[in-house]
Amino acid sequence: MTSCHIAEEHIQKVAIFGGTHGNELTGVFLVKHWLENGAEIQRTGLEVKPFITNPRAVKKCTRYIDCDLNRIFDLENLGKKMSEDLPYEVRRAQEINHLFGPKDSEDSYDIIFDLHNTTSNMGCTLILEDSRNNFLIQMFHYIKTSLAPLPCYVYLIEHPSLKYATTRSIAKYPVGIEVGPQPQGVLRADILDQMRKMIKHALDFIHHFNEGKEFPPCAIEVYKIIEKVDYPRDENGEIAAIIHPNLQDQDWKPLHPGDPMFLTLDGKTIPLGGDCTVYPVFVNEAAYYEKKEAFAKTTKLTLNAKSIRCCLH
């Protein structure tokens, strides 16, 4: 018999989150649709729960009410004593943790798909938090293969000092899905179709896995975050240069030392320094102006996964 890495157990509980950011409308629209008619997301033997994560922000069509829901799922915020004085999103995070967690427990949901849009030209993107997770690498390989020839990129946010504390991190297997470009507060049919297909293929993978299909060893190309880059700023902290036209919409493309990065209003080009080629992502993302992030630098690498098969009882 072929030796293989056996994944822990079959997958039982899956959640699909929309509206973690209330103005990213593809996930909101799909989740609302699936709450009314969820036939397309159901798979035999699998509990799939669509869920609106930040209903107040969705109602106002804004990213958040008090603070970013997708950055506060750490033990400090989840452990705060519940009171009306807490920011709305912290209270909501505790409610979500109660419903789908608790985080880092045996009772937490197996998989959470968190649906997002970006204003950046990132196409279909899967966000991975753990480079050693054979199950998710296999799932992402399946999704990428199923979507081809449509490109699907994998963004690895594993980093020693950049801690995200994402909404989906309460699950055993957290999956971020990011599709763009799409303006905030807008629905685009092409973007919706791409996100819908990503979810379909992900659920198909889980179904095949649960039925005992063995997935042979595989490898995927990923883009691992190195650092986030702020806009150049003046002495008052105001933005002093904008994304250069040569960099705009060039997510995932190589940016070499000396290539144009920013452009000042008086026409001066600010190039990339250093001696390493990087791959920019979230270029000129609207939501990241407040976070002082013009783009993120990534490096390209390959992740390998062992063969996996479900432990059938």
Rank of each mutant, 00 (worst) to 15 (best):
218 C>K: 03
112 I>W: 02
128 L>C: 00
45 G>M: 01
215 F>R: 01
232 P>D: 02
231 Y>S: 05
186 V>E: 05
122 M>C: 15
36 E>F: 07
60 K>F: 10
236 N>K: 13
264 T>L: 05
226 I>H: 08
294 A>E: 05
42 Q>W: 09
10 H>N: 14
13 K>M: 00
306 K>A: 13
293 E>F: 08
286 A>I: 03
82 M>I: 13
257 P>F: 02
106 E>S: 13
9 E>T: 11
286 A>V: 10
138 Q>A: 03
248 Q>R: 05
20 T>Q: 04
159 H>Q: 14
71 R>Y: 11
244 H>W: 00
159 H>M: 09
105 S>E: 12
181 P>S: 01
146 S>A: 14
30 L>N: 05
81 K>S: 13
103 K>H: 12
253 K>M: 10
170 I>P: 09
263 L>V: 09
281 V>P: 05
208 H>F: 13
112 I>F: 02
135 F>L: 07
238 E>V: 07
54 N>S: 07
74 D>T: 13
255 L>A: 00
190 D>H: 06
86 L>V: 13
295 F>W: 00
209 F>G: 06
221 E>L: 05
28 V>A: 15
247 L>T: 02
21 H>L: 01
134 N>E: 15
240 A>E: 08
182 Q>V: 13
94 Q>Y: 10
148 A>I: 07
142 Y>F: 07
132 R>F: 06
140 F>M: 11
81 K>D: 13
156 L>H: 05
77 N>Q: 12
309 R>P: 03
128 L>F: 06
58 V>F: 07
213 K>Y: 13
118 T>C: 14
51 F>L: 09
167 T>I: 09
135 F>D: 04
220 I>A: 03
293 E>V: 15
237 G>C: 00
303 L>Q: 02
143 I>K: 03
174 P>Q: 15
121 N>G: 03
73 F>K: 10
184 Q>G: 12
71 R>C: 13
185 G>D: 02
311 C>E: 15
39 A>D: 13
210 N>D: 00
227 E>V: 02
304 N>K: 14
76 E>A: 12
155 Y>D: 06
270 I>M: 08
25 L>P: 15
219 A>I: 07
212 G>V: 01
76 E>I: 11
95 E>S: 10
205 F>G: 01
152 C>K: 03
79 G>N: 15
210 N>Q: 07
177 I>P: 03
183 P>A: 12
120 S>I: 02
268 K>F: 06
21 H>G: 07
102 P>C: 09
261 M>Y: 04
172 K>N: 06
229 V>H: 01
221 E>T: 07
210 N>K: 10
235 E>R: 10
5 H>D: 15
265 L>R: 11
234 D>T: 09
147 L>I: 15
179 V>Y: 03
222 V>N: 06
125 T>P: 03
97 N>R: 11
46 L>N: 03
92 R>Y: 06
211 E>M: 14
50 P>M: 00
231 Y>W: 11
11 I>W: 04
309 R>H: 12
206 I>D: 02
44 T>Y: 08
298 T>I: 00
146 S>R: 14
44 T>L: 08
171 A>T: 07
124 C>F: 04
276 C>S: 14
235 E>Y: 07
251 D>N: 12
145 T>D: 09
283 V>H: 05
309 R>L: 04
80 K>E: 13
277 T>Y: 03
145 T>W: 06
274 G>V: 04
130 D>S: 07
292 K>A: 11
109 Y>C: 07
258 G>W: 07
211 E>Q: 14
278 V>Q: 02
21 H>V: 07
165 A>P: 14
49 K>E: 09
74 D>R: 10
263 L>G: 03
14 V>P: 01
257 P>L: 02
191 I>E: 05
165 A>G: 14
217 P>I: 01
18 G>D: 02
275 D>T: 11
298 T>R: 04
10 H>L: 13
78 L>M: 12
39 A>V: 10
222 V>Y: 04
50 P>F: 01
21 H>I: 07
156 L>G: 01
176 G>L: 12
246 N>K: 12
103 K>P: 10
124 C>M: 13
225 I>A: 15
78 L>I: 12
23 N>H: 07
30 L>W: 04
264 T>R: 08
95 E>F: 09
146 S>Y: 09
263 L>D: 05
151 P>K: 09
129 E>T: 08
261 M>T: 09
264 T>Y: 04
259 D>T: 00
181 P>K: 04
255 L>E: 05
136 L>Q: 01
281 V>G: 02
287 A>K: 13
88 Y>C: 08
35 L>T: 09
169 S>T: 10
173 Y>D: 01
150 L>D: 11
283 V>T: 06
250 Q>A: 12
240 A>T: 15
28 V>G: 13
119 T>H: 05
69 L>Y: 06
267 G>V: 06
284 N>S: 10
11 I>H: 03
275 D>V: 07
308 I>H: 00
230 D>N: 11
98 H>K: 14
223 Y>N: 06
260 P>S: 07
105 S>T: 13
116 H>C: 08
52 I>N: 05
77 N>T: 13
283 V>K: 05
142 Y>K: 05
268 K>M: 08
302 T>F: 09
169 S>P: 08
287 A>D: 12
82 M>L: 14
298 T>Q: 00
30 L>E: 02
237 G>D: 09
8 E>G: 11
166 T>C: 10
71 R>Q: 14
44 T>G: 11
222 V>Q: 06
310 C>E: 03
222 V>A: 14
153 Y>E: 09
43 R>Y: 02
307 S>L: 04
75 L>A: 14
301 L>K: 08
61 C>S: 12
59 K>M: 11
73 F>L: 11
80 K>P: 14
254 P>I: 00
253 K>R: 10
17 F>I: 07
249 D>N: 07
220 I>S: 02
180 G>N: 03
31 V>D: 06
5 H>L: 12
65 I>K: 04
135 F>K: 00
137 I>K: 06
178 E>V: 15
161 S>G: 13
290 E>Q: 12
286 A>Q: 14
295 F>V: 02
38 G>T: 11
170 I>V: 14
279 Y>C: 01
8 E>A: 12
183 P>E: 06
57 A>N: 01
125 T>I: 00
165 A>V: 10
157 I>W: 10
142 Y>H: 08
65 I>E: 10
122 M>K: 04
103 K>T: 11
94 Q>F: 11
18 G>V: 00
